[in-house]
Design a protein around this nucleic acid. Structure first.
Lengths: 196, 196
DNA sequence: TGTACATCAGTGAACGCGCGTTCACTGATGTAC
DNA sequence: TGTACATCAGTGAACGCGCGTTCACTGATGTAC
């Protein structure tokens, strides 16, 4: 008995995509597989996303919104820039289905307005706390420091997920990664008013 | 007039794969396309690589060897750990066709011995110079510092290639990236004997 | 409250395509004598 | 130096498959009156 008007299909398609990416990697995601996971005809997604790239773009955009939320929340809670960095890493590990899509412009419509604005919000939620952590820094210093810290967290998450530390995410727990991320963060040198 | 015994096919298949990845991203590489680029029947690669994963694994392994070579050379030339990091970034930008495959275990046979040993050599060529740059550091400190610096360089290269700084590699020159990488490196705090 | 009807969100069949892999084959190369 | 022959490295046709997209359709929903 087919249920016409699923009611929540857009939501579930995105969720299924995220699950599929987390399980099999971004290379093997297909509209048909995602539809199958949701239990819907493979032509159904077309009513919510123009095409496959549209679906992946929506996933990435949502991912950036989620990331921004978590970063903002982390800052609000701890007022500790290093902790925001750890949150970034935690996001990547816990939501790898989002994370592995978000930085793959070859799979997305990189100029999509929802995507770019979500990405900008994410970036802002990193740069804001940074400015607070490095009072008195010039704009240029902040920009460089922001790129450096983003790079550090992003690289760590990427390398961890790819298994280049520790032999892969399956062998070591997420808690290990977080603990490690906390130590790694300590190697980040921010511009300090005292040193100028 | 078909030229049987191409003579250099393995080499050219790898090169064509690298070019294809650089042009269209890792998602759209196919054996048939690569064969077409080389001007050879699409069944030819089977004599050099068991299958598609085999080809990509060979590309990644060669990439890690190349990377290791450049890192070693950079260290030999400058004896400056920061410069080794810049070399890492330069490698990623100049050989993005290799780089974008190397950290994608979902596309490779991650346990391939040639791949793992090449990756280990790359890691060693980062960790070696690091040890020289942080004399007196404990083994634990070195391991963490190594992961931190690798993360910083890797993250920077990845984010740059994905267009998350500067609006993408097309809009800014590689020279800009290198200059930026040089400044970013300065944010890396290594364990110092003085501070212990 | 009922009814007509437009719109929305599904179905499932069909399309054409490019893919990886297999296969029997064939031409070139290298080696044994 | 020549010849026989095994091996190597190609060809091109064929396979079956899963894919994204299109299409005519249909059932459910919401709105106008």
């Amino acid at each position: 008995v087919p249920r016409y008007h699923h009611g929540n299909l857009r939501r579930e398609l995105i969720d299924a995509t995220v699950t599929a990416v987390a399980e099999d990697g971004p290379a093997s995601v297909s509209l048909r597989d995602v539809s199958r996971r949701v239990g819907v005809s493979h032509a159904a997604p077309v009513h919510h996303f123009a095409d496959k790239v549209g679906l992946l773009t929506a996933v990435a955009a949502e991912g950036f919104q989620l990331l921004a939320q978590e970063l903002e929340q982390s800052w609000k809670r701890h007022h500790d820039f290093a902790e925001v960095g750890v949150t970034y890493v935690r996001f990547a590990l816990m939501h790898r289905g989002y994370f592995e899509i978000m930085f793959r412009p070859d799979l997305l419509r990189p100029s999509d307005p929802e995507l770019t604005s979500a990405a900008a919000r994410s970036a802002a939620s990193l740069y804001g706390p940074l400015a607070a952590a490095a009072p008195g820094a010039t704009e240029d210093e902040l920009r460089d420091a922001g790129r450096a810290s983003w790079s550090l967290m992003h690289g760590f998450a990427t390398l961890w997920l790819a298994g280049n530390f520790s032999g892969g995410p399956t062998e070591a727990s997420d808690a290990d990664a977080e603990q490690l991320a906390r130590r790694i963060t300590a190697h980040l040198l921010l511009p300090r008013p005292a040193s100028r």
